[in-house]
Amino acid sequence: MSALVLTRDERRRLARLADLLIPAGDGMPAASQVDVHDGGADRVAALLAHVVEPVRRALRADMTLEDLRRDDPEAFGALTTLVAAAYLTEPRVQRLLGYPGRPQESAGYPDAAESELHDLVRPVREHWRAVRE
C-alpha cells in the first residue's frame, strides 16, 4: 500500500489544482468540496501506487496545469488520474451523476423479446442471401 504523504501546503495546492480540473457547475460540486485533496487522494494513492511519485512531482513543480501538461505529461496524467478517480468514485458524486453503480437488474429474458428480434433481423437474412448466394 502506497501512502500519499503531503505537506499542508501540498494539500492546499492539490485542492487548488483539483478545482481547476473539476470545478463546481452543472449541479455538481467542485473536487475539493468532496475532499478529493484529502481523504479521496489518500484512498486512490493506496490503490494506484504508480501515481504517487509523479503526483508529488506535479505538486512540487511551480507550474500552471497547461505548462505541466506540456513539460511533464506523466505528472499531468498522474495528477488527473488521481483527481478524477477520487472524485468519480465518490458515492455522493455518483448519486448526483445519476449513476447507479452496478446494481443487479431484474433477472429474466422473456420469450416475447425473441419474436421481436426475429422481425428485426429479417432484413439481415434477406441482405446476406442477396449478396452471398
Binding site: 429474458y109 423479446a113 425473441e114 426475429h118 433481423v121 437474412r125 442471401r129
Partner: peptide, 20 residues
C-alpha cells in the same frame, strides 16, 4: 444467442440472447 445467423450456419444455442 439467436440461432439463424446466415454467417454462422448450424448454430444451436441452448439459450436466447441477452436482451437487446
Amino acid at each position: 444467442g439467436l440461432n439463424g445467423d446466415p454467417a454462422f450456419p448450424g448454430t444451436d444455442y441452448p439459450m436466447p440472447p441477452l436482451r437487446l
